[in-house]
Design a protein around this nucleic acid. Structure first.
Lengths: 341, 341
DNA sequence: AAAAATATGTTAACCGTTTAATCTACCTTT
DNA sequence: AAAGGTAGATTAAACGGTTAACATATTTTT
């Protein structure tokens, strides 16, 4: 826990010289002899630079704040983890750290406010969307984050003003297996959504209805069920719908985990996937690959989205203020869980 | 981006008063009227506290540095994510942020060094073990982190000096399904390990050999295979071993993902799980629950380990210097992937 | 009415690092 | 030998927030 001053005293020079050398080993403003002495002192005194003091002085921290408005524990969600992984890969490559803030608040707006309160000093932010945010809350969150005056990027948040740097999964609101299932001849599809309140739920529901109607299929409200992006809850929901709607031929799930749970439920009801019931997932996570049968799914390319978000933010931090919107497309991965009707 | 000084000027008082009020809303050193004025100014000027300046002044940051010596992208590994989730839950509850550092280095020691260089100022650290660290490297990493003079906790690192705060999974080095498989009558077991070089690999191998020998079974080197904790690589390794050792009756995998991949491989070779070949996993991740058949596994209680690590560290940050060693036990979860022989 | 207590503020130093502005000694050039 | 460069250092003022010590006005106590 030594400081630059102690190094300076140890060597017998001014703190300025130490700082100059440590920040630029090739500086011509420090003699070769002094450089050696500083190196020695650094080792002898266990010197580690205090990032915070440094950030304060330079007005840049090389730290990016990650804002995830959820009350759930972090690092438990496949989507989010994949995004984070992409973000971290890129940020790390450019020498940036990632900071995750605590929060005890109970609503998405409160969480964002609380987190931002502790965050001034970060070079930029990445704002996630979660199934807990309504469109209205998201707007407020964005206002809040804009007030910091720091650059930021929104991730997968639909209908955000064009002036804001953003990364979107192409039609995330509507990227589902519905068109694919219809094209395979399915007429009796159940839509397995995540959270009722999520920003995307409404879009997905409307899209579902529109497409179903366009295909000349009647749609009843019972064909939309919710699994909270959770295996157990999805399992129960599917078990139930299999009883109430035995005519169902396909389940379109909004996550692979829920799709895997759906397959379990179908199999336990004595039916087979895909012969009796087809199942399609989303995200192309490991679950889709490893399930039996393996799951046909839509790869949302979340890792790429994370990379792009980090790129965008780094650009913005470098002063590039022109708003950019990056759109990542999904890719259909055909496997074994969907049969033709 | 306003500062406390601007708030002070706006209200017409000294910065000290602003700071005092903002840090203690109930302070008696600021009048009710002034409090209101400050609140107003904070809103009007979009004030957000600069954590770094604050950390510098108070000599505590409420930030915990997370050190993960790996070259792989973060947030892609089931074990690590579960641990992180536990850590985050507890840290967040106590108002602590988590900081992840970048690194471009190519060895575990270099990574740790690089990360610590940017980290002075954190209140404490949690040091992970990864399959990339040899025991020797870990020792050096610990020396390095001890030099910071800050409290830290090691997670799942075997054979660490007693003086160091640590959380261990009980016999992580040996917590495998081997005893269970033997007790179920299996005599021809294949051990599916992760990384060759990992700290735990040697322990697991020795433990395997000892137990096999104790059970009076002959052991050949070919019965140990490696899957790099990766689905695809585990799949190939299992495919191969099924051909070279057709007498195999059970596969003991060190992760659920590799177990799920093993099941795929077994099924595709025309055999069934568990009737022809039993498979046991480790970690009790979602994969184990959702696989068909569902996978018997050992729950390592990683989430609890994360919680405990955070607790331990927070204690240490509070000045509790008595070294503690917390040991978390694994729990066997019996499901459908193991049959009696 | 004087003394003591309380309420409300302010001052100024400090946290560790950076950096523009200077300074000094020595070396080149002409 | 004067003028100009350069190498190698230093000084001192930030950065934004905190806090011990001090100050003043107002109220309460005796």
């Amino acid at each position: 826990m030594s400081s630059i001053k102690e190094i300076a005293k140890y060597v017998g020079i001014s703190p300025a010289s130490v700082s100059i050398y440590l920040n630029d080993k090739n500086s011509t403003r420090v003699s070769a002899k002094t450089k050696l002495l500083i190196d020695e002192a650094v080792l002898a005194l266990n010197y580690h630079k205090n990032v915070f003091a440094s950030s304060l002085a330079t007005q840049e921290s090389r730290i990016i704040g990650i804002i995830i408005p959820t009350m759930l524990p972090l690092f438990q969600n496949d989507y989010t983890n994949t995004l984070l992984s992409g973000i971290q890969t890129r940020l790390s490559a450019f020498g940036y750290s990632m900071l995750f803030f605590p929060s005890s608040a109970k609503s998405s707006i409160e969480i964002v406010k609380e987190q931002l309160e502790k965050s001034a000093g970060c070079d930029g932010y990445i704002l996630f969307s979660t199934g807990f945010c309504t469109m209205d809350q998201i707007r407020k969150n964005i206002t809040e984050i804009e007030k910091t005056g720091r650059p930021f990027v929104t991730l997968n948040i639909p209908s955000v003003p064009e002036r804001i740097h953003q990364v979107l999964i192409e039609g995330l609101e509507t990227a589902s297996g519905i068109p694919y299932l219809i094209s395979k001849g399915h007429r009796n599809i159940v839509l397995l959504l995540g959270r009722r309140a999520g920003v995307h739920a409404r879009f997905l529901k409307n899209d579902f209805k529109t497409r179903i109607a366009a295909a000349g299929i009647k749609c009843d409200e019972n064909s939309i069920i919710y699994g909270e992006y959770d295996a157990l809850q999805a399992y129960s929901a599917v078990k139930e719908v299999l009883e109430t709607r035995p005519e169902t031929t396909a389940i379109c799930s909004m996550s692979d985990i829920m799709a895997a749970a759906a397959i379990k439920a179908v199999q336990e009801s004595g039916r087979t996937v895909p012969d009796d019931i087809s199942v399609i997932g989303r995200n192309n996570s490991l679950h889709a690959m490893l399930a039996t049968p393996s799951i046909t799914t839509i790869d949302l390319n979340m890792h790429q989205a994370g990379l792009s978000a980090a790129n965008l933010l780094l650009d913005a931090v470098d002063g590039n203020t022109a708003p950019q919107k990056i759109i990542i497309s999904g890719t259909l991965i055909e496997r074994e869980s969907v049969a033709v009707r």
